[in-house]
Design a protein around this nucleic acid. Structure first.
Length: 260
DNA sequence: ATGCCTTGCTTAGCAAGA
């Protein structure tokens, strides 16, 4: 059983790359962020033709998320965070089939936050509060849970290429990291860190300044698993290959492998 | 220090990303 997350930075541009990647990496579940498509423009037929069911929640120009699943469609799909009034399409939740029992998947495109002194940062903090409550509720109902997506948080200094240069900047602030820890404290585990990993593995690289070539990136895309799933985790890796594509997304997919 | 790219929206220059 494989699950993955990928911020595609426009599904209109990246659809062929997503279909190519799925053909080479036929994961059971894939959540996408930054589709940037209203639902009427979502390429449902193309994705279904590739053998995937898909639930999606989009808006014009910004944000937008999708949940792809092989085999059965995701069940009990919820869009955004119930009870949190938000005009941005950032979260999609559903239960995907798995031999060992269904897995509740929450796919999120966390707010960027722009800068620590900005209104967008305030929104990011409010959004993270709401998400934490939503994940806590869902964990009560669904012990087998995965929270994955573009968190826009680098949890530790080792998750960025230059923690001294970037100290205190967006993605690294103590407030953001406290929120990441708050999710962990619900009983979740950063699947990537369940394993010894080589240094300087990242999931995002700026388009500018030849950042990818110089490996000046950050690890801000994450897969968190619940206690009930932790012992089934076989691997978690970042697939850098699509970042080498022509016209790539600035993010790479992150893939979780669970024992059946 | 700033912008460096990329995208969408709209048609040329922003806003936003991270």
């Amino acid at each position: 059983m494989k699950l993955a997350t990928w911020n595609v930075n426009s599904l209109a541009v990246r659809l062929p790359q997503v279909l190519d990647w799925l053909a080479a990496n036929p994961v059971d579940c894939l959540v996408l962020q930054e589709t940037k498509l209203t639902d009427d423009k979502f390429p449902q037929a193309e994705i279904e033709a590739a053998g995937y069911n898909v639930a999606f929640h989009g808006q014009k120009t910004y944000n937008g998320v999708a949940l792809l699943s092989r085999g059965a469609p995701a069940q009990d799909v919820v869009k955004n965070i119930p009870g949190f009034d938000d005009d941005m399409a950032r979260v999609i939740t559903g239960t995907v089939a798995c031999a060992g029992g269904g897995i509740r998947v929450i796919g999120g495109y966390f707010p960027n936050g722009q800068a620590p002194d900005s209104d967008k940062f305030v929104y990011k903090m409010r959004w993270l509060d709401a998400l934490r409550a939503w994940v806590a509720d869902e964990l009560q109902r669904h012990p087998r849970l995965v929270l994955m997506g573009d968190f826009n948080i680098a949890p530790e200094d080792r998750d960025v290429h230059d923690p001294v240069l970037l100290a205190g900047t967006i993605h690294l602030t103590p407030e953001e990291r406290a929120h990441f820890q708050g999710l962990i404290d619900l009983g979740l585990f950063d699947a990537f860190r369940l394993f010894d990993q080589p240094a300087k593995l990242f999931s995002w690289w700026d388009y500018r300044m030849l950042a990818f070539r110089k490996n000046q990136g950050m690890r801000i895309d994450h897969i968190l698993v619940s206690q009930a799933l932790k012992r089934h985790v076989e691997a978690c890796h970042i697939d850098k290959l699509p970042r080498k594509n022509e016209r790539p997304s600035d993010h790479a997919p992150v893939v979780l492998t669970l024992a059946e």
